[in-house]
Amino acid sequence: MTVVRRSGVLILAAATGAVLLAALGGEALTGGDPVRTATTSWAGPAPGLPLGADGLGRDVLARVLAGGRDLTLISLAAAGTATLLGVAGGLWTGWSRGRSARAVAASADLLLALPLLLVALLAVVAVPGPAAVIVGTVLGGTPLTLRVVADATAGAGRTGYVEAALSRGERAPAVLLREVLPAHAALVGADFGQRLVLAVQLTAALNVLGFGPPPPAPDWAAMLRENLQGLGLNPAAAIAPALALTVLSGAVAALSHALSSRGGGS
């Protein structure tokens, strides 16, 4: 059973990687031009246009394949920043019992009380869309990562392997990076998945509200909004980008879940 679970994680990781790759490089898979008007408005699926056309007669398949790249890149950058800050802060606050570490941990907890969407909306007024996603994910996600990593670090501080490292004179940064972090790598990986899902949702939400790339650039969230009006004429035009968003979030979330249940066992 455990063997099944381990290979399950590998399969999930491969599948998630494939989904991310497709989202990033999907444009290369098709010869279609995502911004050229190919046929009439809301034309249904036809030979050469498997998913039909949108309100301006553009190829929906080409737009779906091209519409995930920016969204995924922004989400990866945002989740990466949030996890990096959270892990660094968590290692520090979990290890040091000093006053400043406690103050950082307390203010991170305070940040959690802020409504995330409101913060993101305020940020998007002040800075461009991608930066707003990063700000939102960091404000909403970093405190969670920090808490989890700080707890794990504090627990690891009492283990024999950390004490052995201290006893051979390793300094705190070496202990944290060589001993504590590797021991909790699965936890951090799972946490990164959670932050990525949050970032994808935030990017999609802001893009639906119109803060995404300006038209005619393809984008899943913007397509969802534009093509809802044609749902009766060509349902595929709205369903395909929605499905793409779901598969991306779902794959990352499933991998994250598998990683976290594995990390608990070791």
Partner: peptide, 22 residues
Amino acid sequence: PAALRALALVGQDPLDALNPAR
């Protein structure tokens, strides 16, 4: 460093004595 080298402890609990990731 010399003092650290001179002393070595083998702890009581073998379960967490070794880093699970190493």
